[in-house]
């Protein structure tokens, strides 16, 4: 019964994973503390989505452990896994909406399949979620009839409809315009304050995503670096982290510097 007392929602311990010859995860150690938001950043193709899929139990590690509330995802029975996943809210990178169902039915599906909620309650709940995501008019459309950013928002609505304890968002704001993504971030804050979920977010939206993060982890060469507060992350001595920070946030500073330089000259 350590399950309740552990303060880690998720723990990856020395996780290794290869696809054929390619070793994607070499030694991944990462914890997600309960009620906090951990953001995973890093260049494309480094294995961020692969890490998420290990947490979800969709991929099994070659070596190492994936613990969710202290239970090992790799050695779990299907039934136990289903119990654990009842607490999950997931947004896949490609969203993975059910393409032969309407937007409304997509969001309503977990309610219909996992609860005995009446159809009227489902309607209210789903319509509220869709309105939150600014999709109020879109319920009757099919995923193929939506734009990329709209699909993302439908995916978010679907992930949040069951009041999850842990959410996994793979690039939630990729493909959204600035005001939409700001809106999503505000919404995320609000729902997290209400539902107190733990969150794992994969994002390329650096540095803006740092405002959301309690912890930032960088994936580099099959390992996790950092997993520290955004402030510490930005001031880190680690040369790899520093290179990443300069690469992603540098242009802002350097353009400021250039601007000043320009004015001084004039």
């Amino acid at each position: 019964m350590t399950q309740k007392n552990t303060k880690f929602a998720i723990e990856l311990i020395d996780v290794e994973r290869s696809f054929g010859q390619q070793q994607v995860l070499k030694k991944v150690n990462l914890v997600v503390r309960e009620g906090t938001t951990t953001v995973i950043v890093g260049p494309s193709g480094q294995g961020k989505s692969v890490i998420l899929k290990h947490m979800l139990g969709l991929l099994k590690p070659d070596a190492g452990k994936v613990l969710v509330y202290g239970q090992d995802m790799a050695s779990m029975s299907k039934r136990q896994m289903k119990e654990v996943r009842k607490d999950f809210g997931v947004l896949f990178q490609n969203v993975a909406l059910f393409d032969s169902m309407t937007v409304f039915d997509n969001v309503a599906l977990p309610l219909r399949e996992r609860t005995d909620t009446s159809e009227t309650e489902i309607r209210d709940n789903v319509e509220e979620k869709l309105a939150l995501m600014d999709l109020a008019e879109m319920g009757a459309k099919y995923p193929a009839q939506l734009s990329g950013g709209m699909k993302k928002r439908v995916g978010l609505a679907r992930a949040l409809v069951m009041k999850p304890r842990i959410v996994f968002f793979d690039e939630p704001t990729t493909g959204l315009d600035v005001s939409k993504s700001n809106e999503i971030y505000r919404l995320f804050h609000k729902t997290q304050a209400k539902l107190k979920y733990s969150a794992v977010i994969v994002s390329h939206d650096v540095p803006k995503i740092f405002k959301l993060a309690d912890y930032v982890a960088l994936i580099h060469d099959g390992e996790i670096l950092g997993n520290m507060s955004p402030e510490q992350f930005q001031l880190s001595d680690n040369p790899v982290i520093r290179a990443f920070v300069e690469e992603t946030m540098g242009p802002i500073y350097s353009s400021e510097r250039e601007e000043r330089f320009f004015y001084e000259k004039v």
Partner: peptide, 21 residues
């Protein structure tokens, strides 16, 4: 074909992650 496309586009993974068998 229907099930294959669902597998291919991760819809079956999505079902599993939503704790729907």
């Amino acid at each position: 074909a229907e099930v294959g496309i669902m597998r291919n586009s991760e819809q079956i993974d999505a079902l599993e992650c939503m704790a729907i068998d």
